[in-house]
Simulated scan of single mutants.
Amino acid sequence: MKSLGSIRRDFAPWSDPQAKPYIRFENVTKRFGDFTAVNNLSLSIYEREFFALLGASGCGKSTLLRMLAGFEEPTSGKILLDGQDLRGIPPYRRPVNMMFQSYALFPHMSVEKNIAFGLKQEGMSKADIDRRVAEMLKLVKLERFASRKPHQLSGGQRQRVALARSVAKRPKVLLLDEPLGALDKKLREETQFELMDLQQELGLTFVVVTHDQEEAMTMADRIAIMDKGEVMQVATPAEIYEAPNSRFVAGFVGNVNLFEGSVAERTENSARITGGSGAQILVENAGEAAKGNDVAFAIRPEKIRISSRKPQDAVNALEGEVYDIAYLGDMTVYYVKLDDGQIVRASMLNAARIVDDPLTWSDRAWISFRPDAGVVLTR
């Protein structure tokens, strides 16, 4: 079995034409005066999915989340949850809960009282509240901190209290707006996996808004890349990375090299692309590109080999000069200035501690790559 990237779990309802979306945005537009925050957007999210809305500031992702939560109403279009139109339903009557970046914990309340607050508002009995709070404390591993106030906790612990409070009411959907933004890098990485495990254990649908690519790639089953109020691509993390559908998506997620040119020859699966300087690139993932089309060949840095001599077995090889080097510990990144002036980024895993005849600044070097190492983009 071959797969485009690693598969984390056997969960892909979006691939089943019979599966019904749990959350559905239908031609949703949201305007604030003359500014269009969300533009005629349609999107499907499935039950038990961990879904990420990823994009730069101002792309409309938080507005989309706020409309789902009920804090904003669409200017036009419909939002459906489990088949029910949410228009006109206030936030407190929607089967969703939202966890904010600031966590919004009550500073004068203990951890257990913070978690119990929403349950008391719903009129749950004291015995049931005590049982649910104990269950939530165990779930987020904070039993020992039940009587502490928020200021007595670390950032990661406060984040878990906010999460426990959000899921205590057993919402159908949990909305997370930049949930890990306040944490340091190491703690953020650890918490990503905790969130994934928690989502699996609870069986809830999670929708997370983030501008952090690594966060979305780590946690989400699928990602929607957004720009200027529109969805540019919806796919699994591996598909987004290995098969972007446009120059924008390829450049937004991870690092990429784009070779611009036109299709000189086209067969059923492969194509030969000629660049402006006359350089020839043979590719196998040519998609819908037709002969004569102006295209870009997108290839990730780790798919490129770099060497001091031209590899004899290389189908695609270009010569240049080492322009810059970044040693990152686990890998070394080389910037090679090709003879036509384009700078190409190539990364090599530092699998060995000692390197024989290493490349350095101003050395002549060859970059090479397989025909199936990248994709052809027509837009």
Rank of each mutant, 00 (worst) to 15 (best):
S166I: 08
I79D: 02
A216Q: 09
M217K: 06
M1Q: 12
Y22L: 08
F32I: 13
R379L: 05
I129P: 06
R300V: 00
V173F: 13
L195W: 09
G329M: 04
S277Q: 06
V263C: 01
P171N: 02
D294F: 01
L195F: 07
R31A: 10
L174I: 13
V263E: 03
A351G: 09
A56E: 15
L338F: 01
E302V: 05
R247Q: 14
D177I: 03
L338W: 00
I23M: 05
Q121L: 13
T63V: 15
N257C: 01
D221S: 04
F117S: 10
L64E: 00
P13H: 03
T267I: 06
R345H: 03
G320L: 08
E190I: 08
P171K: 01
L258M: 10
F369M: 06
A162L: 04
K20N: 14
P107S: 04
D16E: 11
S125E: 15
E49R: 14
R24D: 05
R309D: 11
M124I: 14
P21E: 08
M136Y: 02
Y92W: 12
F50I: 15
L359R: 00
L204H: 07
L153I: 10
M98Y: 02
N255H: 06
G329W: 04
R364W: 00
D340A: 06
N39P: 12
E321S: 07
K337Q: 12
V167K: 05
